[in-house]
Design a protein around this nucleic acid. Structure first.
Lengths: 345, 345
DNA sequence: TGGCGTGCGGTAACCGCTTTCCCGAGCTAA
DNA sequence: TTAGCTCGGGAAAGCGGTTACCGCACGCCA
């Protein structure tokens, strides 16, 4: 075992050790399947590689092959269970495909997405997945679209998770439809007077859920007063603050819909702190069915999105060759009624 | 703008466009600071790069420079809020250092860590962070240590988050001490009869928390019966199942300590399903102070670990040059008493 | 027996950068 | 005026792989 003095072991070292050329060593160790290598040479190469503890230099391979197996994943906030579940799905599927995941968390600053995307482009990723709501900002969206187009031109596959607002493969979350079904169910349960904690104004996900909810209420012949809609952060604290604002201002509702679960949990705390008994004093519903929140009391009525599956679907999408027209993968949302919204009949 | 026909724009293209050599273009665009370039040439290069929308090929740079700015992060389960919070901290700090994070989630299969580490080694990462409890399996730990040593020899910085069981930089979580303090507080609150949901037998984190808890009880003159300790998964469902097992078998306690919060939440559900009123019928305490779980009812007494800070600390550790002896960064645990453990006096 | 196809090992070009080294230009000082 | 600098541009040598291509050895068939 004649290890070179310098740091890492290269293919050349292995080839020397095995008494073959680098070409042969390469074919044995990282061969693309074409070209046979005689059995005895193969054994010698493998033995040498093992003896020297060889590990192929991925950047060098990327360069020689002209492509990597890196998948870039951009999320809004990895500490948010919504995104960490999606990330888990992406990573699970990536493993199956022998890809590795490079992750970026924009932690709210949507405009940073462009910077991260630029950095990511430098990695020459095989694919890029953008998870998280698009915004209503047209200009931003256009710039994003331009960046993504460049990535595609350079050979990367790209997919969005959220809304289909760009001509790109998308995992479509049934935000509108799910909220609509939820609203109908709540009306069926006898609720008539609603308030909505609507999240940030610019996030399409929040907007869609609000719009869908309104549509569902309309289906049931109920209207939502504008004064009963409050905007705020998409977070637990946002939910708390928004609920509190409504309580202080002029809450005239028997049922509050928070456009996601973490906000709903914040709202529940605000209601409690305000002395409202739950679930009797106020019905509360959320959206997402975050696993970690399944045990809050009262158990939360919500709309289930299979988040891991969402991540997996996105990864599978980008692993397929690009199609003529953008592919859409629609993810069903399912209403789950629990204790937080008791029937009024 | 004479864009080359082929896919991506290279530095050579930029140099041509600007009428300079690739050396000059390189110095302008990615220069390490040595070597000045005349102002007018600099402008031309920058203009050309912008016009062609040049993006440096990171693998090629990695190769030429002999190093990357990739930080590998291995976690047990990214969907677990414990790890996603740590990951958030790592990523936040990585951004400050201009590093990008490559993430792997072993989702429980501890033995996969070695495989992931091998893959990661191929990336020639600048640093590697292993987050998550080490196990009691000596053989596994030795193999892990060997792999990490190789990584270090190849120039990567390495850090562990959890226990200091390998001669490697470590962010040390005060599992034992935190649990000890918790136990003392619970005794101070008047509790005398305890049960513990101890998590998996092989995880050192779970062991340490159990051992610390026992020590704290001993400080207060209380002993923990072996029959009141039940082992199970480190998850919500594990907590539920273990609690249920104790309830069915022979629970003789007024206070249950689950070695982490998600288990505690599962335990609370199991207690409720079993008809035990909370918090009066049974006190429950957890560990970690998971943010998403701050709103469960009754609010959970727990031991706070500043998880994002843990991640940040690990990243900072690996960004520093290696020291003579392994560096340790101890993270304080702090007892937080809430409603789930009422005083008995 | 000679022509030819096939299997397979090796040589070397190339991937896109960084950086060393060379060299000419312009400046300073004797 | 010129030797000796410094400054800065460019040529070219890698970095560690992959793979097109070359050529040898062998077997087959006419």
């Amino acid at each position: 075992m004649t290890k070179r003095s310098s740091g890492t072991v290269t293919l050349m070292d292995v080839a020397h050790e095995a008494g073959v050329s680098v070409a042969t060593a390469s074919r044995v160790l990282n061969g693309s399947g074409t070209r046979q290598v005689r059995a005895d040479l193969m054994d010698r190469v493998l033995a040498a590689a093992a003896a020297l503890n060889y590990s192929a230099n991925a950047p060098a391979q990327a360069m020689a092959r002209g492509r990597t197996n890196v998948v870039g994943l951009l999320v809004h906030d990895i500490a948010d269970p919504f995104f960490s579940s999606i990330a888990a799905g992406v990573m699970r599927a990536a493993e199956r495909h022998g890809s590795i995941v490079m992750m970026y968390s924009t932690t709210g600053r949507t405009e940073r997405e462009l910077d991260y995307l630029a950095t990511l482009r430098g990695q020459r990723p095989r694919a890029v997945i953008l998870a998280g709501s698009r915004t209503a900002d047209r200009a931003l969206r256009d710039r994003l679209g331009a960046q993504l187009r460049i990535l595609e031109e350079e050979g990367a596959r790209v997919a969005l998770i959220s809304q289909h607002v760009l001509p790109i493969d998308t995992v479509l979350l049934e935000n509108r439809e799910g909220a609509r079904l939820l609203a109908r169910r709540l009306v069926e349960l006898g609720h008539r007077r609603f308030a909505v904690l609507a999240g940030p104004r610019h996030l399409l996900t929040a907007r869609d859920r609000l719009a869908g909810f309104q549509a569902g209420l309309a289906d049931g012949g109920v209207t939502l007063s504008r004064t009963q809609v409050a905007y705020g952060d998409f977070t637990r604290d946002g939910g708390y603050a928004t609920m509190r604002e409504l309580l202080v201002r002029d809450l005239r509702a028997g049922c509050v819909f928070a456009v996601n679960d973490v906000m709903a949990v914040g709202a529940i705390s605000a209601l409690r702190d305000h002395g409202v008994p739950l679930p009797g004093g106020m019905a509360v519903a959320g959206f997402d069915d975050i696993v970690t929140l399944r045990d809050v009391t009262p158990s939360l009525t919500t709309v289930r999105l299979p988040l891991e599956e969402v991540g997996t679907a996105a990864l599978e999408l980008v692993m397929q060759p690009r199609a003529e027209r953008p592919r859409l993968r629609r993810i069903r949302a399912e209403v789950v009624v629990r204790d937080s919204t008791p029937a009024l009949s």
